[in-house]
Design a protein around this nucleic acid. Structure first.
Length: 930
RNA sequence: GCCGCAGUGGUGAAAUUGGUAGACACGCUAGACUUAGGAUCUAGUGCCUUUGGCGUGGGGGUUCAAGUCCCUCCUGCGGCACCA
């Protein structure tokens, strides 16, 4: 029994735990490095082989950095509030805290089995009151601040109040607000507290507002936009409808520009940056007002194409727009009302599903064109959204496809104002491109589109009818959830006015309830905690915070997890600064990664943290999908199952079968009978495989790994069968970390063989045996090649090729029968990030007392890597190439002679030497000199 | 529809970033040792009409040299989606 991985794994996992090997200190002479994984939601299913992909990658990097002499912070914790535990609680009555704790225990066990080098002394749980104290605290700070557009940062709301009492509402000109209000300083002073609060709510960063929300009746709660996919809830896939509700909101939109600008300096993948840019959705254009005919007001529209203003042939209002009621004429009222009623019936999902149907109604009103003075009809149409821009548009059917469809449907004029390739067909198809020259446009005629946009913005401003305007798609975050298992708001109400608890009164702990369902009167579950109120008997807010609340600042808490006086102390924050490497999946691109950047920027504005961006580098690990297996049950005989190749001859029903009783798609029929009572008498129609044996072959498909599909492969089982190091190396060997791929165990033997081979190289029967002889140049070359490759590849997160490099080195050393200490010592250190248990064992067998985790990373030496095929002196400072014509059958000597004779070679080679000679066909030789 | 990414053997994938395509591993074939092999070891393995020719989704281009750069088309994946 040479390579007893189970014993080795256990020995070193215990050793690391006992010695707190990976505990990071907040003070050190070493440079710091902060490696963070996105912390998991501890689900009941436990970890499957897909989860550790990112954990292993970050662990390899952490271990590498420790060996490189860094003080590494590598913590782990749990995003412990969430829907599944609560849904489970509703079904079983089991308190979510109990299930969550049980799941956490299981998660920790599994992570330890993989030898992950976390500093567990810093573990956080978002559901822990000592943790959510600081989530609540940040919320109260957001309530007490507003966004100052001039200073471009959050400022105390008290400053705004002071300004109101001297300047009235004009003080709010540069504050980001929900709606415009008008009052004088004296009026402000005469306001009572309720009136003042109503004003202030428009400016607070955490504020209450009546907003259209995604209401999910099945879950009994509202959901954020990123929690809704295709009109269905992301969790559970329940239908979602639109509803107006009074909710806590966070003014994330104030930070839109900073969230966008901040991306430039981040080392994130282009695709992820692109996703965030899309989500923020900046668009530049102009806002201008169109006067309504025979009325004393006009309405504001937003357009990115002010240049096409001479092509406007109608206006469209969103059905939700307040203007609709104001402008609709008596003759058109019944038609418009009917249309509005019909639109209301269409659910959010319907509107998304069928974007092609054109619908609308004429209001009877007209606008006056600001430049031509012509009358323009005003319509209502549901393709214009209430929540974006001003909820009203100028329609230019010749140059906007949606306007074009509307114009065609209602037979409205299409006036081309841009000439370009294809504009002659503008009656049939709109020309949306921002290129070409202006026509039919008075003073813009002949200008290029881009110039015309500039000119027009200038003109609009000059005439006082509008100005340049930037709009963002990013909306404020709705922060209330009508659920139990989340952070309680540190808020109570006095005469309906929200009041914040002081930090000394935090945390406000989640009260117990008898059931986890809404009350009979439809209040959230917290309404059942009847005695839950302040000392004065005032009621608390009954909603809880959403999932992203607890995950928005956890990376800061790890820096100083036991501090009861602050989220993070100044010293700890200034030492660790921000996350150097953040590893996680793309699924958080528009949720967590936006909210936590916002949250961090807010704390930065208040001076609580020293870095504006929390995550410097981001590595997106791919998803590991499951490979499901199926059996085919006859519809005629529900006890009979037909093999995959023969299923065409029968009418069958496809059933998922546990992949753990299937090997290479061949079903273990006895295990199947034993799997579930309903299958105990199962009969099979078998097929012949290539060996002529009768077997049951299963169907297969790549799907998401999930319990219900029976395709979950547990990392524990793999670790038990092959050892943690094989699991770690194999997950890396599968391919680039960033790539998604289906799990299959087919190649794991190869990786396992590599570790055994390496082990056996330094073992004679059961005895560890190393030679003290000096290594040969050949052996040194093998070693230094792998040292160089490993360092380079780890730095560039190319872990699959690093594993290959170790395999090559092992094979080479085996051929050389090399078991020398001089080789093994550095090799073990370089291998330790990938196979820490094996490396640590070898390290101790080599006689070291201290853990390999802090051994110094061996630097490679280039002199051992010289190409020995050519006997040239070599240097490694860059490379140069030049061309040389040679006779067909040249020798190496001739090459050298020719090189030296070449007229260019003198100045090229001067002071340098030939590094590499590459011979390619067609009598051409490339000489690389350095 | 718009934006981004990718396409290489039977399979997972490499390729010093423009320099001998297919490293490494799985699988497969043959052999050795074995009572046995789902153990271990050795050799072979891109394709073909094999003294040679062809090959990185298709077509074209730049270059002494292209998987890599440019144009174009096809296919797949991801994101956004009536955002004016």
């Amino acid at each position: 029994m040479p390579y007893n991985f189970n014993a080795i794994d256990k020995k070193w996992q215990d050793f690391w735990a006992d010695h707190e090997t990976f505990k990071a200190d907040n003070q050190s002479d070493k440079p710091k490095y902060y490696v963070l994984d996105m912390f998991p939601y501890p689900s009941g299913a436990g970890l499957h082989v897909g989860h550790p992909l990112g954990y292993i990658a970050s662990d390899i990097y952490s271990r590498y950095k420790r060996n490189k002499g860094f003080n590494v912070l590598h913590p782990m914790g749990y995003d412990a509030f969430g829907l599944p535990a609560e849904q489970y609680a509703i079904q079983t009555g089991q308190h979510p805290a109990v299930t969550t704790d049980a799941n956490i225990t299981r998660y920790k066990e599994q992570m330890d089995l993989m030898g992950l080098s976390f500093d567990w002394s810093r573990e956080v749980k978002t559901c822990d009151p000592s943790y959510y104290k600081w989530t609540q605290w940040a919320f109260t700070k957001m309530f007490e601040h507003y966004y100052d557009r001039e200073a471009n940062q959050a400022k105390p709301i008290s400053e705004l109040e002071a300004a109101f009492s001297t300047q009235g509402s004009s003080a709010a000109a540069l504050a980001d607000g929900t709606e415009e209000l008008s009052f004088t300083a004296d009026e402000w002073k005469s306001f009572d507290e309720n009136q003042r609060e109503r004003v202030l709510q428009n400016y607070r960063i955490a504020y209450l507002d009546d907003v259209p929300v995604n209401w999910c009746p099945a879950l009994g709660t509202v959901l954020a936009n990123d929690e809704v996919k295709d009109g269905l809830s992301e969790r559970g896939g329940h239908p979602v409808e639109q509803k107006i509700m009074r909710q806590w909101c966070l003014r994330v939109s104030s930070y839109a520009q900073r969230l966008l600008d901040g991306l430039d300096d981040l080392d994130w993948s282009d695709s992820l940056k692109e996703m965030q840019k899309n989500w923020i959705g900046r668009s530049e254009g102009a806002q201008l007002s169109f006067q309504v005919k025979d009325k004393d007001f006009g309405f504001e529209i937003f357009t990115t194409r002010p240049d096409t203003i001479f092509g406007v042939s109608f206006m469209v209002l969103a059905p939700e727009s307040d203007y609709v009621a104001q402008v609709t004429t008596t003759e058109q009222k019944s038609e418009v009302d009917a249309y509005l009623a019909a639109t209301k019936l269409r659910s959010q999902k319907d509107r998304q599903m069928d974007v092609k149907t054109v619908s609308g109604a004429f209001t009877g009103a007209y606008c006056i064109h600001p430049f031509t003075g012509k009358e323009i009809p005003v319509w209502v149409g549901d393709y214009v959204l209430g929540g974006y821009g001003t909820g009203a548009i100028m329609a230019v059917p010749a140059h906007d496809s949606r306007d074009h469809a509307f114009a065609k449907y209602f037979n409205l004029p299409i006036i081309p104002v841009v000439q370009g390739e294809g504009t002659d067909r503008v009656q049939e198809e709109s020309y949306d491109a921002k290129s070409g020259k202006m026509i039919n446009s008075d003073f813009l005629d002949g200008k290029k589109v881009k110039d015309a946009i500039k000119t027009m913005i200038f003109k609009i401003a000059e005439q006082g009818i509008g100005a340049k305007q930037v709009n963002y798609r990013l909306r404020d975050a709705i922060f209330s959830r009508q659920r139990y298992w989340g952070e309680p708001f540190p808020v109570y109400y006095k005469d309906g006015r929200p009041q914040m608890l002081d930090v000394s009164e935090l945390p406000l702990e989640l009260p117990d309830v008898d059931k986890f369902l809404p009350t009979e009167t439809g209040e959230p579950p917290l309404g059942r905690a009847s005695h839950w109120q302040t000392k004065e008997g005032l009621p608390f807010e009954l909603s809880t915070m959403p999932g992203f609340a607890g995950s928005s600042a956890y990376f800061l808490r790890y820096m100083d997890p036991h501090n009861n006086e602050a989220l993070v102390s100044k010293e700890a924050n200034e030492y660790w600064k921000s996350v150097d490497l953040y590893v996680g999946g793309t699924e958080h691109a528009t949720g967590h990664l936006i909210y936590s950047r916002f949250w961090n920027k807010f704390l930065f504005d208040l001076g609580y943290v020293c870095e504006e961006e929390p995550f410097k580098k981001l590595l997106n690990q791919g998803m590991i999908q499951g490979r499901s297996n199926f059996v085919y049950r006859l519809k005629s005989d529900r006890n009979k199952y037909v093999s995959a190749a023969l299923k065409g001859q029968h009418d069958t029903q496809e059933l998922h079968v546990d992949v753990n009783i299937v090997s290479n798609d061949i079903l273990d029929v006895e295990a199947f009978r034993a799997w579930r009572p309903e299958f105990k008498d199962a009969e099979f129609i078998l097929e012949k495989n290539s060996d002529g044996k009768e077997v049951y072959v299963c169907g297969h498909a790549v799907e998401k790994m999930s319990k219900s599909k029976f395709n979950v492969v547990n990392p524990d089982l793999i670790a038990e069968k092959y050892g943690a190091d094989t699991l770690r190396c194999y997950e890396m060997f599968l391919g680039p970390v960033e790539q998604s791929k289906p799990w299959n165990t087919n190649g794991i033997e190869g990786v396992y063989r590599f570790l055994v081979k390496l082990w056996n190289l330094y073992h004679n029967d059961d005895r560890f045996e190393v030679s003290e002889d000096k290594a040969t140049p050949e052996e040194l070359k093998v070693l230094h090649t792998v040292l160089k490759k490993a360092a380079q590849d780890i730095e560039s997160f190319s872990f699959n090729t690093t594993v290959s490099a170790f395999m090559i080195a092992t094979n080479d050393l085996q051929k050389l029968k090399c078991n020398k200490r001089e080789i093994l010592t550095p090799l073990a250190i370089a291998l330790s990030p990938f196979a820490p248990h094996t490396a640590e064992e070898l390290w101790s067998l080599l006689g070291h007392q201290e853990s390999i985790a802090y051994a110094q990373w061996p630097e490679h030496n280039e002199t051992f890597l010289v190409e020995s095929n050519f006997n040239y002196p070599v240097s490694f400072n860059g490379k140069m190439r030049f061309l040389l014509e040679l006779p067909v059958d040249f020798s190496k000597e001739e090459i050298e002679k020719a090189v030296l004779a070449h007229e260019d070679s003198q100045k090229w080679i001067e002071g340098k030497s030939i590094k590499k000679v590459i011979i390619v066909p067609k009598k051409i030789v490339n000489i690389v000199v350095g």
